[in-house]
Each structure stands twice: as structure tokens, then as C-alpha cells.
């Protein structure tokens, strides 16, 4: 990438003009990102609207994976994130945020799912079988 040459010359604190130029990418990078994004948007809509896979669990997983891939495409080609931008600090912040988001999402859903199952009002029959 053209941005790397600019970053190698400057430390994290001193940003020259070459740096700001490299930050926006090129027509090529935007076009690549756009084409990939369109493909990664059309496929999940097609899968769900056309009920193509005929299996909602598989469709859910495929759609989730495609969404994740599209997010990475946006970060790389539109936000021009790399491990080297701003001396690596933006990447560190991103990794930290992804960790927190993963804990928050997975933790909330997991904990609340079990709460929901265990705190559900039980029918008389269920109550009797549990008591035994």
C-alpha cells in the first residue's frame, strides 16, 4: 500500500504531508471496496429473500459470516485501517473495542438466555418433576 512508505518515514508523533495523502486510499481501493461490498450485500439478501438454502440455521450462520467479512472490507477499503496507521494505536483501539463488543454481546445473550430458562414460570407439572 502507498500509505506504508509515508508511515515508515514518520514516527507516530510527526505526521508529514505524505501521511495525509496516504490516508484516503485511491480510486482503486474505493472501487474494490465497493464491488466487494455489493457482492457481500447481495448474497445475504438473496439467501434470505429467496429462501435459497431452505435451512434457517445454516442461513443464519452464513449471513452472519458474510456480514462480518463485509465489516472487515469496510474497515480496510473505506476506513483505510491498517495495523500501521497512527503508529498502530488505532489498530490497538480497534482490537480492544472488538474484544469488549464480543464480551458484551456474547455475555449478555448467554447470561440472559439462562436467566430466561431458569426463571420461567413453571407449570404445575414441570414444578412436580423438578421437585423430585
Amino acid at each position: 500500500m502507498s500509505a506504508d512508505a509515508g508511515h515508515a518515514a514518520h514516527g507516530p508523533a510527526s505526521h508529514g504531508h505524505g501521511d495525509t495523502e496516504g490516508g484516503h486510499g485511491s480510486v482503486k481501493s474505493y472501487a474494490t471496496g465497493f464491488v466487494l461490498s455489493v457482492i457481500l450485500t447481495v448474497i445475504p439478501f438473496w439467501l434470505v429473500m429467496g429462501n435459497t438454502l431452505d435451512n434457517s440455521l445454516v442461513t443464519t450462520l452464513v449471513v452472519l459470516v458474510l456480514g462480518g467479512v463485509q465489516m472487515v472490507v469496510h474497515i480496510v477499503y473505506f476506513l483505510h485501517m491498517s495495523t500501521k496507521s497512527e503508529g498502530g494505536w488505532t489498530f490497538m483501539a480497534l482490537i480492544f473495542t472488538i474484544t469488549l463488543v464480543a464480551i458484551m454481546l456474547a455475555g449478555s445473550v448467554w447470561v440472559m438466555y439462562h436467566m430466561n430458562r431458569n426463571m420461567m414460570p413453571m407449570s404445575g407439572h414441570e414444578m412436580q418433576t423438578k421437585m423430585r
Binding site: H15, H17, E86, T97
Partner: peptide, 28 residues
């Protein structure tokens, strides 16, 4: 030019905190 670099990093940190807001809403 110093402030330009730190502005971009600072704004990125703001976006990451915004990301956490959305994460809580997604979790909800």
C-alpha cells in the same frame, strides 16, 4: 501537523466508544 495526527486518533477513539453504545443496543 501534530494536531492533525492526534485529531484523527482521537476521533477514531470516539468512534470506538460509539461502537460500544451500538454494541449495548445490539446486545439488548
Amino acid at each position: 501537523h501534530h494536531s492533525e495526527g492526534s485529531t484523527m486518533l482521537g476521533f477514531w477513539l470516539y468512534l470506538m466508544s460509539d461502537c460500544l453504545i451500538f454494541a449495548t443496543l445490539f446486545a439488548t
